[in-house]
Design a binder for these strands. Structure first.
Lengths: 342, 342
DNA sequence: ATTAGCACTCGATACAAATGAGTGCTAACA
DNA sequence: TGTTAGCACTCATTTGTATCGAGTGCTAAT
């Protein structure tokens, strides 16, 4: 069976109509909806073909057709002509200066949620491969040590250590100086056992403190895999009846709330060069079981210094891919200019 | 109309039965359910009285009775005999050492959500009246200054400042030393204009840096009113049919996700000595419009140094107040011992 | 004061009929 | 040969109707 241009047009019409109404779409609708000027009967024949090809299905006899995951995949891969709307309003948002990254991310999530009517999630930039930029030891009280680590991208992390015994101010100063010099510019991978042993030797009787400090540094760099994730518009899910049945809504919202599983989804492609930019997961293509009836569109953003994070949009399979992709691209562009300027 | 003991017993029975089943409860049920040995007819008479007093209502003719907000209020205020169950399992949770406050709070939220089957929220300790404990200035690169502020309760806050011009290391050291000595132990309220002017004078040409640093300190102390709030078990709401109607579920979950309004609810009583401990808001008694069909139980916890936060449990009006209060008290006790020991 | 009995109310449930959107197929047509 | 009108058929949904039963209020008897 060949997929000629007319079939493509009909498939496109079905997808677009279904995405607006959420109802299975019948041959008569297509006949009137499009500029093909074909009777419903002809459309029916074509539809039968499309169904045979696995691009659309009937939920039950005597119902219209809805696209299959495969149908959407075709649409997304081949047919998506990007619109250049939505640009204007994006330009305006965030006029107020945002100095905190966290707030910025929250704002973006909220913006996307209200403008797309889908649920939105965004992961904070991860510093997995980032370098130590600065390290500071300060004594607090008699037996506590404040370790401040700054990694590339100016992300600051603090840890307060209990020291087993008192160290002299001079020792602390020296140790700090030494550690700073040694670790500066290194990634986690580069802080190997040899280096650690050497540091401990130099520290002499303070080797135990060095160990604790290094732990803190490791913590700061790896973030213990706990990338903060912000979500918004989870309740948009309720706008799509096909997701409100049974407990699917409950599952989706639960997943969005707990964030645990989202990390997996959002950080999956971070290292992968090929998977940069925008990815679309339709139905079962995404790894989160609770979202098997959804589609997820993700986009990787990058601040300077290789700091990367991901934005994700969760909606029904009939989501307006076109619009979502456009709006995401624009937000990305916005982010780029924001961080280039700075 | 007088509220004699028998009426109270019947009211109690109605509330308890309704809280288990979620269905309006009829006279016959009560007649068998209780140890009063009264016929359903007698119960009916009493019920009519209770209804007249505004403590229970019929959702419609030919249905059983359900408690009104007033009825619950009476129950909560007078009748709640605290059970001492649930203690055992609480003791066990959190054996794994939790070093981060954030993680601890998340864990508590999750624990409460799974054990009560209601939605849970918890606000991080607020430092509104806390004192500066430690302050550290460090140069980063040529023109950046890292300000690290530790306030009571060991909450650390960092800010990276751009300096307009380069300061010598010695100047930075001196300034840091001086600021630390001056501000140590002060609350925000105590850092007044006189003090600021004096600090600036001493700093001489670096007065502008002092100003920026003080801003950062103020930021750290006040947290800009943005208390982090963690939620868990929002989807528990779906377990209660009476909250799943219309878009109430959507509203409640939306409120829980956005957190904005929760802050209001959770921080409202923080200063108030009288309102310490456990508070119960039934129906409209709480200030959040979206939760007018819910009850909210809040408890204020206190770490050392006057750091206070609030835990909140959100459920249907027929929630098991008794259980919730007991479990909350136990968690509080747990927290107390954790932070006293440390 | 309590209770048995009874008529009444009204939401819930079940079932049948009507509705109508949509299909597949066939025969006629350009 | 591709297109279309027409028609019989399917089946989820809607509508209407009868029944059921839990629960009430009232009255009269105990």
């Amino acid at each position: 069976m060949e997929l000629d241009e007319r079939k493509v047009k009909i498939l496109k019409a079905i997808i677009q109509n279904y995405q607006e109404t959420g109802e299975p779409v019948g041959s008569r609708t297509i006949s009137k909806y499009t500029d093909l000027n074909l009777s419903s009967a002809t459309i029916r024949n074509e539809m039968a073909d499309l169904e045979e090809m696995g691009l659309i299905v009937q939920p039950h006899t005597s119902a219209g057709r809805i696209p299959t995951d495969q149908g959407y995949r075709l649409y997304v891969d081949q047919l998506m002509a990007e619109k250049d709307r939505e640009v204007a309003q994006i330009k305006d948002f965030m006029v107020q200066r945002v100095n905190r990254l966290e707030q910025l991310l929250r704002q973006i999530a909220r913006f996307l949620a209200t403008n797309t009517n889908y649920a939105t999630m965004i992961s904070a930039p991860s510093v997995s491969n980032s370098k130590v930029k600065f390290l500071q030891l300060s004594r607090m009280g008699t037996d506590k040590l404040l370790v401040t680590v700054v990694v590339e991208g100016n992300i600051v992390k603090n840890t307060i250590l209990d020291m087993d015994r008192t160290m002299s101010d001079e020792d602390i100063l020296n140790l700090g100086f030494h550690l700073n010099n040694t670790l500066n510019g290194l990634t986690m991978a580069q802080i190997n056992l040899g280096l650690i042993t050497k540091l401990k030797e130099v520290a002499g009787s303070n080797a135990d403190v060095v160990e604790k400090v290094l732990e803190a540094v490791a913590d700061a760099i790896s973030m213990e895999g706990e990338v903060p994730i912000y979500t918004s518009g989870a309740t948009n899910i309720f706008k799509y009846p096909e997701l409100t049945t049974d407990d699917t809504a409950s599952q989706i919202i639960g997943t969005l709330e707990e964030k645990q599983q989202l990390a997996q989804l959002l950080t999956a492609n971070l290292g992968d060069e090929d998977k940069q930019g925008i990815q679309i997961y339709i139905g079962n293509e995404n790894s989160v079981q609770a979202m098997k009836d959804c589609s997820v569109v993700t986009a990787t953003y990058e601040l300077k210094d290789g700091l990367q994070g991901t934005i994700g949009i969760v909606g029904p399979k009939r989501m307006d891919y076109d619009k979502v992709v456009t709006i995401l691209k624009n937000v990305m562009a916005q982010l780029d200019t924001m961080f280039d300027k700075k």
